[in-house]
Amino acid sequence: MSEVKSTVFLCLQANDETRGVIEAIERDNEHASFDYQPGMVRITAPGTLTVRRETVEEEVGREFDLQELHINMISLSGHVDEDDDALVLSWDR
Protein backbone atom coordinates (compact mmCIF):
# COMPACT_ATOMS: atom_id res chain seq x y z
CA MET A 1 0.00 0.00 0.00
CA SER A 2 2.20 2.77 1.24
CA GLU A 3 5.64 3.12 2.75
CA VAL A 4 4.36 5.54 5.41
CA LYS A 5 3.87 3.69 8.70
CA SER A 6 0.57 4.73 10.24
CA THR A 7 0.41 5.43 13.95
CA VAL A 8 -2.45 4.59 16.25
CA PHE A 9 -3.23 6.60 19.34
CA LEU A 10 -5.19 6.43 22.57
CA CYS A 11 -5.97 9.57 24.59
CA LEU A 12 -6.84 9.04 28.25
CA GLN A 13 -7.74 11.49 30.95
CA ALA A 14 -4.80 11.83 33.30
CA ASN A 15 -6.29 11.04 36.69
CA ASP A 16 -6.01 8.62 39.59
CA GLU A 17 -8.01 5.89 37.86
CA THR A 18 -5.89 5.85 34.73
CA ARG A 19 -2.45 5.95 36.39
CA GLY A 20 -2.24 2.16 36.62
CA VAL A 21 -3.67 1.74 33.13
CA ILE A 22 -1.04 4.05 31.68
CA GLU A 23 1.70 2.17 33.53
CA ALA A 24 0.37 -1.14 32.18
CA ILE A 25 0.36 0.26 28.64
CA GLU A 26 3.94 1.42 29.15
CA ARG A 27 5.01 -2.07 30.24
CA ASP A 28 3.30 -3.85 27.35
CA ASN A 29 4.18 -1.41 24.57
CA GLU A 30 7.86 -0.56 24.47
CA HIS A 31 7.42 1.22 21.15
CA ALA A 32 4.75 3.63 22.46
CA SER A 33 5.37 7.26 23.34
CA PHE A 34 3.53 9.31 25.96
CA ASP A 35 2.69 12.97 25.50
CA TYR A 36 1.28 14.62 28.61
CA GLN A 37 -0.97 17.61 27.84
CA PRO A 38 -3.12 19.57 30.32
CA GLY A 39 -5.61 17.11 31.85
CA MET A 40 -4.74 14.22 29.56
CA VAL A 41 -2.13 11.94 28.06
CA ARG A 42 -1.88 11.05 24.39
CA ILE A 43 -0.27 7.66 23.78
CA THR A 44 0.93 7.05 20.23
CA ALA A 45 2.48 3.97 18.71
CA PRO A 46 3.50 2.99 15.20
CA GLY A 47 1.32 0.13 13.90
CA THR A 48 -0.35 -1.25 16.99
CA LEU A 49 -1.08 -0.58 20.67
CA THR A 50 -2.34 -3.15 23.19
CA VAL A 51 -4.02 -2.74 26.56
CA ARG A 52 -3.83 -6.09 28.42
CA ARG A 53 -6.25 -6.81 31.24
CA GLU A 54 -3.75 -8.89 33.24
CA THR A 55 -1.10 -6.20 33.27
CA VAL A 56 -3.65 -3.54 34.25
CA GLU A 57 -4.85 -5.79 37.11
CA GLU A 58 -1.29 -6.16 38.36
CA GLU A 59 -0.85 -2.40 38.31
CA VAL A 60 -4.14 -1.43 39.93
CA GLY A 61 -4.20 -4.37 42.34
CA ARG A 62 -7.79 -5.43 41.66
CA GLU A 63 -9.95 -7.08 39.04
CA PHE A 64 -10.35 -4.85 36.00
CA ASP A 65 -12.93 -5.02 33.23
CA LEU A 66 -11.43 -3.52 30.07
CA GLN A 67 -14.71 -1.79 29.32
CA GLU A 68 -14.00 0.43 32.34
CA LEU A 69 -11.66 2.18 29.90
CA HIS A 70 -14.71 3.86 28.37
CA ILE A 71 -15.01 6.09 31.42
CA ASN A 72 -11.67 7.79 30.98
CA MET A 73 -11.04 7.35 27.28
CA ILE A 74 -10.96 10.65 25.38
CA SER A 75 -10.18 9.53 21.86
CA LEU A 76 -8.45 6.89 19.78
CA SER A 77 -7.50 6.02 16.24
CA GLY A 78 -7.06 2.73 14.41
CA HIS A 79 -9.26 -0.33 14.20
CA VAL A 80 -10.45 -1.64 17.53
CA ASP A 81 -10.38 -5.30 18.46
CA GLU A 82 -11.67 -5.89 21.95
CA ASP A 83 -12.29 -9.07 23.95
CA ASP A 84 -12.17 -9.92 27.65
CA ASP A 85 -8.38 -10.02 27.80
CA ALA A 86 -7.12 -7.25 25.57
CA LEU A 87 -8.03 -4.11 23.67
CA VAL A 88 -5.93 -3.81 20.52
CA LEU A 89 -5.69 -0.75 18.31
CA SER A 90 -4.06 -1.26 14.95
CA TRP A 91 -4.14 -0.30 11.30
CA ASP A 92 -3.18 -3.85 10.26
CA ARG A 93 -5.92 -6.41 9.72
Partner: peptide, 16 residues
Protein backbone atom coordinates in the same frame (compact mmCIF):
# COMPACT_ATOMS: atom_id res chain seq x y z
CA UNK B 1 -12.79 20.29 30.63
CA UNK B 2 -15.00 17.76 32.33
CA UNK B 3 -17.97 17.82 29.97
CA UNK B 4 -15.59 17.97 27.02
CA UNK B 5 -13.60 14.91 27.98
CA UNK B 6 -16.76 13.15 29.13
CA UNK B 7 -18.38 13.76 25.74
CA UNK B 8 -15.29 12.79 23.83
CA UNK B 9 -15.14 9.46 25.66
CA UNK B 10 -18.37 8.66 23.77
CA UNK B 11 -16.95 10.10 20.56
CA UNK B 12 -14.24 7.45 20.60
CA UNK B 13 -17.05 4.94 20.18
CA UNK B 14 -18.85 7.10 17.61
CA UNK B 15 -15.91 7.61 15.31
CA UNK B 16 -15.22 3.89 15.42
Amino acid sequence: MTFGFSAQSDEARHMT
